[in-house]
């Protein structure tokens, strides 16, 4: 290499002395550092973790069979005969149903977001980086979906294809994909015009190489942040679909469905009827606050 030739100019020592000797962290390390000192995000992160663990280990944690009905034990209060959170309108143990219901709700919240991130994100990156025609083709198609109110679209798709967890997830994926695509497209278009991408082009790098090394890293941040906010929306929408009878079918335990069926008993035992709603509320707000915290931690560049 000719570059290793003798230096004709000295390395300025002062340069290095004056360089900040603060601990040098990588980007993700400094994000992590900031998160560690954010008590709100840490607390709700813990809540989210507990909810996920509870859903995963529902069979181990549930004290009763969630489908076992009891004619005499309907709508009993907290602590009745070891039913910690009482029983529902068919006498099933509510705690067990909440634990199992969490599995469905989380699945309905997370899987469509993942699908939308992959599909919408890729389309968005392609649309943002490619020329005007491709961009127009992709984005206008997305706009057609985007034009419907998301709840209405989800209801319409589920209604057309019939209920069930699978169809519900497909419906939600289709609702989220255009939004995800838009976020990815905007982020890509911004990065595309920055000097370092132009410098990479000037080096002679091809489009795929630039996408992989320079664009992806800068687009994934915003995309993941947006995805994390969508999870709570997903849980809410899934519950909404079930509530309307378009998602999960009885007797499967699901928070939205439980809310719907317990609704009739609100005058008999209002506390118990409110529990699925509380579960939805706590889960979605926890996801929201965690994603807010992550966004704040990732936002700061200095």
């Amino acid at each position: 290499m000719s570059q290793t030739a003798v230096l004709s100019h000295p390395v300025t020592e002062a340069d290095e002395q004056a360089a900040p000797a603060l601990k040098v962290r990588g980007y993700w390390a400094s994000v992590g550092y900031r998160l560690r000192y954010d008590p709100v995000t840490m607390f709700f992160g813990l809540v989210v973790l507990l909810i996920i663990l509870a859903a995963i280990f529902a069979p181990l944690l549930a004290p009763f069979d969630p489908y076992k009905e009891s004619v005499i034990g309907r709508l009993k209060p907290f602590g009745w005969k070891n039913h910690l959170l009482g029983t529902d309108e068919l006498g099933r143990d509510l705690l067990s149903r909440l634990l199992y219901g969490g599995r469905v709700s989380l699945l309905m919240g997370v899987v469509p977001v993942c699908v939308a991130t992959v599909v919408g994100g890729s389309l968005g990156i392609v649309g943002g980086f490619a020329g005007k025609r491709v961009n127009t083709a992709i984005m206008r198609t997305m706009d057609v979906f985007y034009a419907f109110p998301s709840v209405l679209l989800a209801v319409a798709i589920s209604g057309a294809m019939g209920g069930g967890i699978g169809n519900g997830m497909i419906a939600l994926s289709m609702v989220f994909t255009p939004a995800m695509c838009r976020v990815a497209e905007t982020a890509t278009a911004q990065v595309k015009n920055l000097d370092f991408v132009e410098a990479a082009r000037a080096t002679g790098a091809g489009t795929l190489t630039i996408l992989r090394y320079h664009v992806l890293g800068n687009v994934l941040g915003p995309v993941f942040i947006y995805a994390s906010t969508l999870v709570s929306v997903g849980i809410l929408l899934a519950s909404g679909l079930s509530f309307l009878g378009l998602g999960v079918r009885p007797p499967t335990a699901d928070w939205g469905l439980m809310l719907s069926t317990l609704r009739q008993s609100i005058y008999v035992n209002p506390l118990i009827c409110a529990l699925p709603g509380a579960a939805i509320f706590i889960t979605s707000i926890s996801f929201n606050l965690v994603s807010d915290g992550i966004r704040a931690a990732m936002d700061v560049r200095m």
Binding site: L194, D195, F196, E198, A199, A200, T203, G206, G217
Partner: peptide
């Protein structure tokens, strides 16, 4: 080759500078 004005956008913020310099020879 080209050197741009130093601005927030002249270097990839997600890449250690050594990798940025190595990118050209790698390509």
């Amino acid at each position: 080759q080209m050197v741009f004005q130093d601005s927030y956008s002249s270097l990839n913020p997600r890449m250690p500078v050594q990798d940025t310099v190595a990118f050209g020879p790698f390509v």
